[in-house]
Design a protein around this nucleic acid. Structure first.
Lengths: 340, 340
DNA sequence: CTGAAAGCGCTTACAG
DNA sequence: CTGAAAGCGCTTACAG
């Protein structure tokens, strides 16, 4: 592979001026430099022969040309679902000849600001914010949104319903789960998950739970809703043990819908330890439908899916097409052994 | 936040020439433009006030300045372990003020070439190849390595021992596992994994297995080595079922070391289905020590760990420091319930 | 100590 | 139809 060649050098080899080379190699340019087809052929041949690639930095500096870079904001508390989202998202972006620049945001607002400033430096074509649950996020995003290129959120950030966002309807899958469990004869269906105040996604799960109960004609019983409060100082194991004690023993649950697959797995383990049979005595539903997990437990785990491919596709499309952000992505129940 | 300001504008506001601004804002530059401390203060104040950020593209075009971008090559068959590596790697790169540009390579050599060419366009500071198991990879990497910036591989690519690579000693953890199992009284220790020809990592597991047997004073029995051959047309479930049939029933195994945690989970499920107790009748060891999985099974899964943090740190360091690539990272056994 | 100028590679408005 | 030139924002060799 020869050394990198530039337009000036091609022009010299083809015996034309550099502007002609530029015009030939950018057919859709609006410049009015026209060239004869003979000259065009010569330039194209040489460019091909020497493996010409335009200099990206020069193009951007000039004010034309885009970086083909899309910033993707994630955070360290990323759950397995969002991990599963990264690869499909890369595939969707690649289809559009874009590449993913990863920005991991932490708890520190200053670091988040410095990250976004760095994003600005790179002249991104767009930003996809998969995670934006940062302290002070409203202030930060309000300051940066006008400067950043088109930004698409996965669900609206706190207090900013005016942003472009692909939303997941977290409620639907839970509603479906309740109906499925009720159809299987379960009457004491519980919901078990992390702090509901902070995360919209958790609140929506609770909404879906209530909707499902109403549709199934079952009463709501607050004793069947186990929600971990933050800052109690309990370990995860203690919380899970407490949840099983509360739901299975005290409240007489015959089914549990977990806030995510990790919780479902931990619950399954604790139920096994206490010799409470799943699904015979208690049916169990996860959330996230994480590959490799749901199909590897015994019994296989029923879970709620919100199509990573669909979400990835919509996020990528929404960068250029506002319509892609309109319809929410429905979460759906995927039935396996743990509920039958 | 004010509009973006450039050196020319700062120079105008400070009543100096642009070169002075450049000199003040790049203290380590070798230009011999010197400025009085009074002028320096004025320039710094204005730059700060207007939130000056140097234009990255201009710097790169000028020939100085680096992109602070590191390309990271992954592939779609990325296992959960490598996923777990991405976030620690991002953290290590961020410490060095670098950002991760994701390149997902597929089976198609042309796409891989186009990906690498795109990497060249972005003027990367370095490339970390986590996955490089592509068809034709030797030809491709031989062509691109001289053009790419410093490239660090996770394990050497096929046929290229002369590359800079952070190597994982996959053998050690398996050796430790065999010794641990033998110490617990197991005598028929099996190894169960995917095609060993293709992946060095699989061959090294087999090496560690043999070393462990020798050290434990146990005979090698080829009937205890179950290796999936590619292209048989069997589903994953069929392979796992076949493995359990072969190892547990025909070969009388009392312990199984799996090639990865996904296999271990699937084996555990199949053993449960056949009412073969783990660890009572058969001890089980995974590989990868994937978070959320090993601790969520019943019994909890003993697995082999090759410290993602250590690997991430060495990969990032090796970009600038060849010494970081010298010592292999040892895989280690993490003992949990499935082997006691 | 300070300023004017060249040039990185590119696109495009303008003149011939 | 073709060529000469300006300018994106920056660094640095050079002249005063």
């Amino acid at each position: 592979m020869p050394e990198r060649i530039n337009q000036k050098e091609i022009a010299r080899l083809a015996n034309v001026c550099q502007a002609a080379v530029s015009a030939v190699l950018n057919p859709n340019a609006r410049g009015n430099t026209k060239v004869s087809s003979e000259v065009r052929e010569r330039i194209l041949r040489i460019a091909d022969e020497y493996n010409y690639r335009p200099n990206l930095q020069a193009r951007i500096l000039r004010g034309n040309g885009c970086s083909n870079l899309v910033g993707v904001l994630i955070d360290p508390q990323i759950s397995l679902f969002f991990y599963d989202l990264l690869l499909p998202l890369e595939i969707e972006l690649r289809k559009r000849h874009k590449r993913m620049l990863i920005g991991q945001i932490g708890d520190n607002p200053e670091e988040t600001e410095s990250l976004l400033r760095n994003f600005l430096d790179h002249n991104l074509d767009g930003v996809i914010a998969i995670h934006h649950d940062v302290r002070d996020s409203e202030r930060i995003f309000r300051a940066f949104l006008p400067l950043l290129p088109q930004t698409v959120f996965l669900n609206h950030p706190e207090g900013m319903p005016d942003t472009r966002a692909v939303c997941i309807d977290y409620a639907n899958g839970v509603r479906e789960a309740v109906l499925h469990l009720a159809a299987g004869g379960r009457r004491r269906i519980a919901l078990c998950m992390d702090d509901a105040e902070r995360y919209l996604s958790m609140r929506m799960r609770a909404d879906g739970y209530r909707q499902g109960l109403v549709q199934a004609g079952l009463p709501f019983d607050s004793g069947l809703m186990f929600i971990r409060r933050p800052g109690t100082g309990c370990t995860f194991e203690e919380v899970i043990s407490d949840a099983v004690e509360t739901l299975a023993n005290r409240s007489g649950a015959d089914a549990v819908i977990a806030g995510n697959d990790e919780w479902a797995l931990a619950l399954l383990k604790e139920l096994n330890r206490r010799r409470i049979s799943v699904p015979d005595r208690i049916a169990l539903v996860g959330y996230g439908n994480v590959r490799n997990i749901c199909r590897s437990t015994a019994p296989e785990l029923t879970s709620i899916h919100h199509g990573t491919e669909e979400v990835a596709c919509k996020l990528a499309r929404a960068l250029t097409d506002p319509a892609a952000a309109e319809q929410p992505v429905l979460s759906r129940l995927v039935i396996r052994e743990s509920t039958v």
